[in-house]
Structure formats: C-alpha cells, structure tokens
C-alpha cells in the first residue's frame, strides 16, 4: 500500500504543500475561492525552518500505536484500518487537547473547520487525503521532498542510493551543485550571525 514519504534533504521550503493542503481541505477545493471562505481553511502539514533555514515538511506519521488515539478519552480519534490512517471525528471531539499533548511531532492543531459543527473548534490533523487519488501535499511538491509510493520501492531506492554513495567515483558527484552552493552561503550567514565573540 502506498504511503507518503518525506525526504527532508529535498525540501526547498516553498510551502506549496501547506497551500495545497489547506485548499484540499476547503469547501470549494479552489485556492482562489478558498481564501475567502469562513472558517478559513488551514493546512494540516506545516513547513518548519531548520537551524540554517532549511525547510522541513512536518506531517502526521499516522503512528501505530498512535499516542493521540490512546490519549483521546471521548473516542473521537480512530484508525481507518483499510489505509492505516488516523482520523478524527469532529462531532465527538471535545477540544481537550490531550491528543496534541500526546503527539510527539506537534502535528495536531485546533480550529474551526467547515466539516465540523459550526462555531466549534476541534482537533484537526492530516487525513492522508483519503478522498483523493494522491494526497494534495505530494501532488504539489515538485522537488521530491514528499512522495507517495510503496514503502518497498522507497526502501529499495534508498538502499541503491547508499550503495552508490560508498562507491569512490560517486563521492565526487554532486547532482545539484547550485542547491549545495546556496546552502553553503546560507550556512555561512547563519554561523556569522550566531558567532558569540565579535572579533572586529
């Protein structure tokens, strides 16, 4: 079964996954109209900034066992066994934040949703876009930081990558010198800003 894979080294921090996620979870499913909906749709994936400003798409891992599910007293959180997806029933959610406290990844937020009872803030998180063929975040990601694939094929690819990386010839190979250059400059900038002793 296909799953969403995250490849942080490929994230360029463009935040398109966030916009696409919010749109996919809007009433109108269109960016241009979604921005004027009430309540305003919000993303369920969030791009954080690393120490050197590098992007990281932070998304629900749909853990098993899931700490959020175990922590949910009213039984609003449940697993869709066909896909392994952890889902939330907004009708049952009592907005107690236990799940958010239990979540090790900080991916559960609280806000109003068009699919929840009107005026009620509920726990909201990634639902793997079960209504769609491909999750919206993956579909929009053009740098390959998010992929939707069989874990076995992703593992094979990773194995091949590791195998290639220990080959002496491949060590020199840098397929994206421009991105490496940009990151080198950004790292230097951050280190300079953080330098404790000012030598001038």
């Amino acid at each position: 079964m296909k799953k969403v894979m995250v490849h942080p080294e490929r994230c360029v921090g463009c935040m398109q996954c966030m916009m696409s996620c919010a749109t996919a979870h809007s009433q109108s499913k269109s960016l241009f109209t979604a921005i004027s909906e009430k309540p305003l749709p919000k993303p369920r994936v969030h791009v954080g900034a690393g120490r050197y400003g590098e992007g990281f798409p932070n998304r629900c891992r749909h853990c098993d066992p899931a700490p959020c599910l175990s922590a949910c007293l009213p039984g609003a959180i449940f697993r869709d066994h066909a896909t392994g997806t952890i889902l939330i029933n907004p009708e049952r959610c009592i907005n107690c934040a236990s799940c958010a406290m239990a979540c090790p990844f900080g991916v559960i937020r609280y806000h109003q949703e068009y699919s929840a009872p009107i005026g009620k803030a509920v726990a909201v998180k990634c639902d793997n876009c079960l209504e769609r063929q491909i999750p919206a975040c993956v579909e929009v990601c053009k740098s390959g930081a998010l992929t939707y694939e069989e874990p076995s094929s992703a593992m094979k690819r990773k194995t091949d990558e590791v195998a290639r990386s220990i080959c002496a010839d491949a060590m020199k190979e840098n397929t994206t010198p421009g991105f490496a250059l940009l990151n080198a400059v950004k790292r230097a900038e951050v280190r300079m800003r953080e330098e404790k002793s000012c030598t001038i």
Binding site: R10, C11, C14, A49, G53, G55, S143, G178
Partner: peptide
C-alpha cells in the same frame, strides 16, 4: 523562514500566465 528555495535559486518564473512555473533543482 524557511524562504522559498525556488525563489532563492531563481528557479521560479512568474513572467507569464501559462505558468507560474518552477524547475526542480533535483
């Protein structure tokens, strides 16, 4: 932060409305 990598690398193009487009640096 993080700023958009496509924009930082000059790889996003908003010149026409067939796009906007971006090139995958990978």
């Amino acid at each position: 932060q993080p700023s958009c990598g496509y924009c930082e690398m000059g790889l996003s193009c908003r010149i026409c409305v067939m796009g906007p487009c971006r090139i995958d640096p990978f």
